[in-house]
Write a protein that binds this DNA or RNA. Structure first.
Length: 557
RNA sequence: UGACCCAUAGUGUAAUGGUAACACUACGGUUUUUGGUACCGUCAUUCUAGGUUCGAGUCCUAGUGGGUCAACCA
């Protein structure tokens, strides 16, 4: 706790502490996370979720989960369920599960109240006419011809709108604010529109639905939310938010805007993510290449890594693109602590140990995770024929190549030191087998051979090895900000190699104990998690993130 | 011809008028039965110009650059 207190405050916390010091909210601090159930949550939402829950925790407050479901056209219960699952998976417990639609009756009364105060009117203009009268950012708007309707007429028309007497789009209810305002949103914003549409929760009760501006702030107020955190694009809505609170004389929630977090190579537009799903670019919202929470989960990102990442990148008001490497470093750090080590040969070549007795085998102990004392161990079978990684044997190696080569020695992890004596090639010159001798006295744990080797490689026993399918995922886009190029569609930047399926990999038998979402480190290679579509016959592993590879880096230079 | 928001290493954040810090990246090194991990080191005229002040990244003014605003979406 003291560590937390020493940390400097972000600008939102500074505002909150000022409010507390000024006794603005003497009773409590409450936040809320308000998703619209029209898509899956993505990495951008994760930062908002973490922010809202972290602030409530810090100030002993509460956080509501409130679905902003005022537009029945796009919203679905399926999305509600997915959103709840994702937030819970991240490890957060909301205090109340609420819906803007819970407040439809109250909101309607609020609208009637506004009409009675002469602050709202029914407008018969078409959407084109309304847009026309709205003006532009540099040209003031004009008053609607319906703006001065009598309170009685407004009340009558509004109740008939509710009764379903008018078709979609024929009339709207608008707040009477100021058509001359510099702020477009203050130019008599629409607050109710007619939509004869089935709502996922209220069914066919309503044919009249409130707009965002007449639902969000009021919902905040009804829930006694003190600090309503939203992204920068809503900054122009704040005067509207405050106007309604003042005129309705309701609890004064405070809106604070922050810059939403962007991560390189990830997109955070629900509409664009939906298109990837609909066009079949990915297999679904939870495809491991997606920037959705569900996708990241399936890819093997631990929840703690995502939360720590969100906490560490902070919050501010300027445009930002966080490098993917930052997120990945948190994923590696977390996985390093919790992922059991396993040996998987992704591109096998056969190695025959010429002096190892025919028909014999032995079990060698392997530590599950050297970074975690209590992780235990398991055994790995070893015998005369094994497979090693193709890239771990070179005919004509460069100077600082520490692996196997003709007449060179290398250690087999957890096993023996071997020396390459000969090899066989096919007609194309590909290595098909390496013959080695082993040093029986070099056995791991009881090595008295006196041989010093620079390299240690992984391997899998030929007979006991288990075929696995490796889904080698890479970035979905070839550009860090695919949606920011004028005149170019983001789909032009889809990486054709974002998934490479490897069906020739072999894993040690320990993999058979794995369950979906178990994390593994394929030693010297990458982290993987078990895919949900794995069966008893075929284990499918999704690549989470590669291990750092300083050798490869040097070679590339 | 408008209003509003923003500007600190390659990236993201901190410094709350008093020695520009932390993380990631990059580069160099030490350790290592994972070329992983761990550890050490290197990397900034705080957008520009004025002003206030003993002292400015921080306050003021102007400029420059970037972003947002004209859905019966949220």
């Amino acid at each position: 706790m003291s560590e937390e207190q020493n940390k400097s405050l972000n600008f939102v916390e500074q505002e909150i502490e000022t409010d507390i010091a000024n006794d603005r909210y003497p009773k409590h601090i409450h936040t809320r996370f308000p998703p619209e159930p029209n898509g899956f949550l993505h990495i951008g939402h994760a930062t908002a979720i973490c922010l809202n829950f972290a602030i409530a925790k810090k100030y002993n407050g509460k956080t509501n989960l409130r679905f902003d479901d005022t537009n029945p056209t796009t919203e679905k219960t399926d999305y509600v369920d997915a959103i709840k699952r994702d937030i819970a998976w991240l490890g957060f417990k909301w205090d109340n599960e609420l819906y803007a639609s819970d407040y439809f009756d109250t909101l309607y009364e609020y609208a009637v109240d506004l009409i009675k105060k002469g602050l709202a009117y029914v407008d018969d203009s078409t959407s084109e006419e309304i847009a026309e009268m709205k003006g532009t950012p540099t040209v003031p708007g004009k008053d609607s011809p319906y703006r001065e309707r009598s309170i009685e007429e407004n009340l009558d028309l509004f109740s008939r709108m509710k009764a379903g007497e008018f078709p979609d789009g024929s009339r709207t209810l608008r707040a009477k604010i100021d058509m001359q305002s510099d702020n477009m949103l203050m130019r008599d914003p629409l607050i109710y529109r007619i939509k004869h549409e089935h709502h996922h929760r209220t069914g066919d009760k309503w044919c009249l639905y409130p707009m965002y501006d007449f639902a969000h702030g009021q919902s905040d107020s009804l829930e006694k939310i003190t600090h309503s955190l939203c992204s920068l694009e809503f900054i122009h809505h704040r005067p509207v938010y405050e106007w309604f609170i003042e005129k309705l004389e309701i609890f004064p929630s405070r809106q604070i805007e922050f810059a939403r977090r962007n991560v390189a190579y990830m997109i955070t537009s629900k509409r664009k993510l939906l298109k990837l799903v609909e066009d079949g670019v990915v297999t679904g919202w939870d495809d491991p290449r997606m920037s959705t929470i569900s996708g990241l989960r399936r890819k093997g990102y631990p929840p703690a890594a995502i939360v720590k990442f969100c906490d560490s990148i902070g919050v501010a008001k300027r445009e930002n693109v966080v490098e993917l490497e930052m997120l990945e470093s948190f994923v590696r750090a977390e996985l390093n602590k919790i992922a059991n080590r396993i040996m998987i040969v992704s591109d096998p070549i056969k190695v025959t140990i010429t002096n190892y007795p025919e028909g014999e085998s032995e079990m060698l102990p392997a530590i599950n995770n050297p970074e975690e004392e209590n992780s235990g161990s398991h055994e790995i079978p070893f015998s005369k024929e094994i497979f090693i990684e193709r890239s771990d044997f070179m005919l004509d190696p460069p100077k600082k190549y520490f692996r196997l080569a003709p007449n060179k020695t290398v250690r087999l992890k957890y096993a023996y030191i071997i020396e390459a004596e000969s090899y066989e090639q096919d007609e194309n010159g590909n290595i098909i087998e390496v013959k080695c001798k082993y040093y029986p006295s070099s056995k791991s744990g009881s090595d008295n051979s006196g041989i010093k080797v620079k390299g240690v490689i992984h391997w899998v026993d030929a007979k006991a090895g288990v075929p696995v399918r490796l889904n080698e995922y890479d970035k979905l886009f070839t550009d860090p900000t695919p949606t920011s190029h004028e005149g170019k569609d983001y789909l032009e930047f889809v990486n054709p190699d974002s998934l490479i399926i490897n069906n020739k990999a072999l894993a040690e038998p320990y993999i058979k104990e794995a369950k979906p979402l178990d994390y593994f480190q394929s030693m010297r290679k990458a982290y993987y998690t078990v895919d949900q579509e794995s069966t008893d016959d075929l284990i499918i592993l999704n690549k989470t993130v590669g291990l750092k590879d300083s050798f490869k880096k040097k070679q590339q230079k």
